[in-house]
C-alpha cells in the first residue's frame, strides 16, 4: 500500500490529483492516505464543511451515537466519542458548529476497524456538536448540544 501511495503521489504531483480527490469526498481507506483536507478544515460553516467532505444532506440517524458531556466546564478539553452500529463504516468526522472552523477531526477506517473513536476537542462556546459517519457510500449524522461554561479559545 505504501508503494502504491508513493506511485500515486508521484503521478499526481502531490496536490493536484489529491486535492481533487479530497475535495470530492473522503478517500476510501486502503486506496491511499488522503492529503490533509484543507478545504474541509478551513470551511467556516457546517454546510461548507459538509460540502467539502462530499457529504451533502446527510441523513439523521439513530445508529450514530455521539458521546459527550451535556455540560463541559472547560472548553479546552471536551471529551467526544463517536460510535456507530451501522455496517461498513468507512469514515467518521467530528464537527463543532460554533468553532471558527467546525471540522475538528476526520478518521478513515479501513476494513476491520471498529466504528468507535474517542478524542478531546476544544470548544469556544456552547454549541451543537455533530458526528458524521460515512457507511456504504452514504452519510449519516447525529448531533448533541454541549454547554460550555469556560471557553477553550481565550488567550
Amino acid at each position: 500500500m505504501n508503494n502504491q501511495r508513493r506511485e500515486i503521489l508521484k503521478a499526481g504531483g502531490g496536490l493536484g490529483l489529491f486535492g481533487l480527490l479530497a475535495a470530492a469526498g473522503l478517500i476510501t481507506p486502503g486506496e491511499a492516505r488522503a492529503e490533509w483536507n484543507k478545504a474541509a478544515f478551513d470551511a467556516k460553516t457546517i454546510d461548507e464543511t459538509l460540502k467539502a467532505l462530499g457529504a451533502t444532506a446527510p441523513a439523521n440517524s439513530a445508529d450514530v451515537q455521539l458521546t459527550a458531556p451535556d455540560i463541559a466546564e472547560n472548553g479546552a478539553v471536551v471529551p467526544v466519542g463517536v460510535v456507530s452500529t451501522l455496517a461498513g463504516v468507512e469514515a467518521i468526522a467530528i464537527l463543532v458548529e460554533k468553532n471558527p472552523n467546525p471540522l475538528a477531526a476526520s478518521f478513515m477506517l479501513p476494513v476491520g476497524t471498529e466504528p468507535s473513536v474517542q478524542t478531546r476537542v476544544k470548544m469556544g462556546q456552547t454549541s451543537d456538536v455533530y458526528a458524521l459517519v460515512k457507511a456504504g457510500g452514504k452519510f449519516f449524522i447525529a448531533k448533541k448540544e454541549i454547554k460550555v461554561t469556560l471557553g477553550g479559545c481565550g488567550g
Binding site: 479546552a76 471536551v78 472552523n101 475538528a104 477531526a105 478518521f107 478513515m108
Partner: peptide, 15 residues
Amino acid sequence: QVLAGQFGTAISKNP
C-alpha cells in the same frame, strides 16, 4: 494500516 485520521486546530492540546 488500521486508522488514518486528520486533525484540525480544534483538537485539544496533547491530543
